[in-house]
């Protein structure tokens, strides 16, 4: 399974998570292409530090665009094991790739069953269509 939009799970707040069944228990997290387009002209992003704990549904960072600040929410609980080094200094790259090249953090999941409660690609597309 590759890191492509069809293989991801989503939050309704437009964060995605990629959790390959490779036994590592590490999930990769980012924000969707829709979110990047909505945010428009990203200026600042703050990400957590490696070693920090995050809770599913809670904020793990913030992003600013057009004078609006929006928290980013974690799809799963666990501990941050890696952040995408340098991504906050080249946020424009998210415009061309919000997924494989635009991941933000990696989390060692404490409860992988939380993935079951997230939206799959079809459900997320339906949400986007509803929101018009």
């Amino acid at each position: 399974m590759t890191l492509s939009p069809e293989n991801l799970k989503y939050l309704s707040s437009h964060e995605w998570v990629y959790a390959p069944e490779d036994g590592s228990g590490v999930a990769t997290v980012g924000i969707s292409a829709f979110a990047v387009a909505e945010l428009n002209d990203l200026v600042y992003m703050a990400l957590p530090k490696v070693g920090q704990s995050v809770e599913a549904g809670q904020e793990f960072g913030e992003v600013e665009s057009v004078k609006a600040v929006s928290p980013m929410y974690s799809p799963v609980s666990g501990q941050i094991v890696e952040i995408h080094e340098g991504i906050v200094d080249r946020l424009e790259s998210l415009n061309s790739d919000a997924y494989a090249g635009g991941w933000l953090i990696k989390i060692k999941m404490s409860d992988p069953s939380q993935l079951d409660g997230l939206l799959d690609y079809q459900a997320y597309q339906k949400l986007l269509a509803q929101n018009g």
Partner: peptide, 22 residues
């Protein structure tokens, strides 16, 4: 006077809101 995404230009924006323009 908007910043360029993630670029160095964001550091050159005026400090005060009323000197910036959107």
């Amino acid at each position: 006077t908007c910043s360029v995404a993630g670029g160095k230009e964001k550091d050159k924006e005026p400090f005060l809101c009323f000197h910036r323009r959107t």
